[in-house]
């Protein structure tokens, strides 16, 4: 068997093992459950509120939006933080010392982050469907839309997340990603319709993937009539594909260059230096 096929398989199995580990670890379990519970509680209390200009529940509209946010969060933040943490602790250097190890490592991270995202989406979606009768995944079309939005969303965000992760010098700088993320979430029409924002803010939000992921998810789960409250009175599938596709292309072009540069710089002494620094911070 070709060494690359072997490494790809090893990467898949590594991703599976690490996904399994994420269910038995208190920290990652908290990471799955805490946001889910908070979001469900928020939506529960929003269930009576109406989307402006309609009789539709704001809570029900928020649920698909948060699914889009979850996909973006997984690709951008989870990917970036895993990379910075594992660069600091030497996991990446081990991959570098193994033949085709970096390739396998990358496959494993794609598997792991995809798996974690799927789990997080399911954790929100399943109770959400019980909570709101108006949400329906009763047609093949709806499932297909959900699937392609998730897939394109992951391809659009994971490479960019990997680039951020490679550029951050240590995990304690994750705030540099989290703060803009929070700002974008607030302005991307996740918790409140984007139409309520000033025009320039709408323009900014439409550059980034979060808005489009939210929109795509709404198009999958909400009744057709709800498209009327969106910008352009439409689900804008073509635009969604174009913007997310643009991010995917940019990420896929940039990520190999940045990742290679980061990997080249890894050595025993660079890991030792980071360990030293982290230890000083602890004591």
């Amino acid at each position: 068997m070709s060494p690359l096929v072997v490494a790809a398989r090893a990467g898949l199995s590594r991703g599976r093992i690490e996904l399994r580990q994420s269910f038995t670890n208190a920290e990652t379990l908290w990471g799955y459950l805490f946001p889910t519970v908070v979001l469900l509680v928020v939506m529960f209390f929003l269930r009576g509120a109406k989307v402006p200009g309609t009789e539709f529940s704001l809570g029900a509209q928020t649920l698909p939006s948060t699914l889009g946010m979850t996909v973006a969060f997984g690709g951008l933040v989870t990917m970036a933080s895993i990379l910075t943490v594992e660069r600091e602790d030497g996991t990446l250097l081990r991959a570098k010392a193994t033949p085709n190890g970096m390739f396998g490592y990358l496959i494993s991270k794609i598997t792991l982050v995809s798996g974690m995202t799927l789990v997080s989406v399911a954790l929100l979606l399943v109770p959400g469907l019980f909570l709101f009768d108006v949400l329906a995944l009763d047609s093949i079309g709806a499932w297909l839309t959900l699937a392609w939005v998730m897939l394109v969303g992951m391809v659009a965000t994971m490479p960019v997340g990997a680039v951020f992760g490679s550029l951050l010098s240590n995990p304690r700088n994750m705030g540099l990603i989290m703060l803009p993320m929070m700002g974008l979430i607030a302005t991307s029409g996740i918790f409140y319709p984007i139409t309520a924002m000033p025009g320039w803010l709408q323009a900014v939000a439409q550059v980034f993937p979060i808005y489009w992921l939210g929109l795509g998810m709404r198009s999958a789960l909400l009744p057709e009539a709800m498209a009327a409250v969106e910008l352009g009175d439409s689900w804008r599938h073509l635009e969604t594909l174009l913007v997310l596709g643009g991010w995917a292309v940019a990420g896929l072009v940039l990520a190999p260059v940045v990742l290679r540069r980061m990997a080249r710089r890894e050595s025993g002494s660079s890991v030792a230096a980071r360990r030293e620094k982290a230890m000083q911070r602890v004591t």
Binding site: M1, S2, V6, Q21, D89, A97, T98, G268, R275
Partner: peptide, 29 residues
């Protein structure tokens, strides 16, 4: 072979599982 100084990487992995995984990359060689 490079013996690296570990710190806290792969802390959740079981010894045998980790060695099996890393060893698998060498099989084609």
């Amino acid at each position: 072979g490079v013996v690296l100084q570990s710190w806290r990487d792969h802390g959740r992995w079981r010894v045998r599982e980790l060695l099996t995984h890393l060893g698998s990359y060498y099989a084609p060689y």
